[in-house]
Design a protein around this nucleic acid. Structure first.
Lengths: 240, 240
DNA sequence: CGACTGGTTGATCTCCATCAATCCCTGTGG
DNA sequence: CCACAGGGATTGATGGAGATCAACCAGTCG
């Protein structure tokens, strides 16, 4: 089996059928013919560079987004103009669902590293959902999952110490890599300490200190943004 | 098939067509004939008494719920067994959407006062959505709204003082009464101080003290669970 | 090679959790 | 109907976790 010209692969993203994270995304369980209908909807853009915005708060809503590769941060602005991170999204995850109701994006989405996203125009997706029951169900499930995700954030934040929050945060990231069948005990944090602290409602310094402390205790190994979880059971215990 | 017993009418809640909160719920913008199809899906139960559970974590998911009148609290359990309130739901609001993905309720729902709810069996709702585009769209919108609602909670909690959180909480409740076209400057808090504090990630005493302080400053008037917001603009300023 | 961004570590102070005492609705039963 | 119990709410006193201020260090990029 010869593959003489790999060049065409450089910018063209894999179709849904070949996509690595297909099982986490909208096309799960779709029959082959429906999959290709779905595939036709998807708008695949050039990869986003780090720091590039996918959309900004106030922009008109066109469609929802799925990440093929990379990571995106979404954040809103509080009334006093402060930035509040509402989520980190990695490959296989779908986001932008918060804009469906108002048809305007209520928050900003920015790439944390080089990122490949698929845009799925929502009006067309709704149309196709009327034809394909599995797709309708997948859409419901993905939205439900997003609601649960945010509830988990509340559980993570609720009435807990900085130590617990950070332990839970690390375990949560780890789990999400595991969901993708990637190594889950060694990964690169795609966001800055600043972003983590903002997300967890802590000071940047507290996050840094806690990482150092976990390292001293032998729970993790952390070099800049590279983390290795060395003692899962102990870390879980810390997280309670 | 005889149904001689008119008793069943005693507790029958208004059909969707007559429902006070119809415009906030799934039937918005439905044509009359579709509305009656929708109406046939709805299961209307006996009103729940205060403290009664609508569902418990782990129970199989049957359908989503809409509140006609009353209030419900949803809460999850953290890994260490602590209770964490994830939301308060008042009339016109739809909840239980977090159970769609896993087909199991991830949290508990308990009535905070005498409450009338409609259950909407989800499988049937999905079926009907395939026929009625407006319904599909309403479902998407309601789920999107729920995602936004939870993001707002994050914004409310994020990096703010107890004073700000409580001001925001009051304004948020007020807004939700306004959405229902009810008086929004005078209402009864349907939940205990304990619940509020848990929800906002504060100590019960802090909530109580802050209420007293707002009262002293003339921002609100609070007697037990009855609140009157006296200075909207100032309260908004405090909330930033 | 400096300038800069992002991260670590240290010192201090403050806000809020915690502990504790008291008050006050609500509802229940004699 | 009233008294009494018990949970819900308020208020006070104290300590500590974590925010804030500040200095320093390490990659990285023009």
């Amino acid at each position: 089996m010869l593959k003489p010209n790999p060049i065409h692969l450089i910018h063209v993203k894999p179709a849904c059928e070949q996509c690595r994270v297909r099982e986490l995304c909208l096309p799960t369980n779709l029959k082959s013919q429906d999959l290709s209908l779905m595939d036709k909807l998807v708008v695949r853009r050039e990869p986003l560079a780090k720091g590039e915005f996918l959309y900004r708060a106030g922009e008109k809503f066109k469609g929802i987004y799925a990440i093929q590769d990379g990571a995106v941060k979404t954040y809103g602005l509080t009334v006093d103009g402060r930035e509040q991170v509402t989520g980190f999204h990695i490959s296989g995850e779908v986001f932008g669902l918060d804009a469906i109701d108002g048809e305007v994006h209520p928050c900003n989405a920015v790439a944390l590293e080089k990122t490949e996203v698929c845009q799925i125009p929502f009006a067309k997706l709704e149309e196709l959902s009327m034809e394909v029951p599995e797709l309708l169900h997948n859409l419901s499930r993905i939205m439900s999952r997003e609601i649960m995700r945010e509830q988990h954030v509340l559980l993570m934040l609720g009435g807990t110490s900085a130590e617990q929050r950070i332990a839970r945060f690390l375990l949560n990231m780890s789990q999400r890599y595991a969901d993708q069948k990637l190594v889950s005990d060694r990964f690169r944090l795609c966001m800055s300490r600043q972003d983590i602290s903002n997300y967890l409602g802590l000071a940047l310094e507290t996050v840094s200190r806690q990482f150092s402390q976990f390292q001293e205790r032998g729970l993790i190994d952390i070099q800049n943004r590279y983390v290795q979880i060395k003692q899962f059971s102990l870390l879980k215990q810390v997280a309670q």
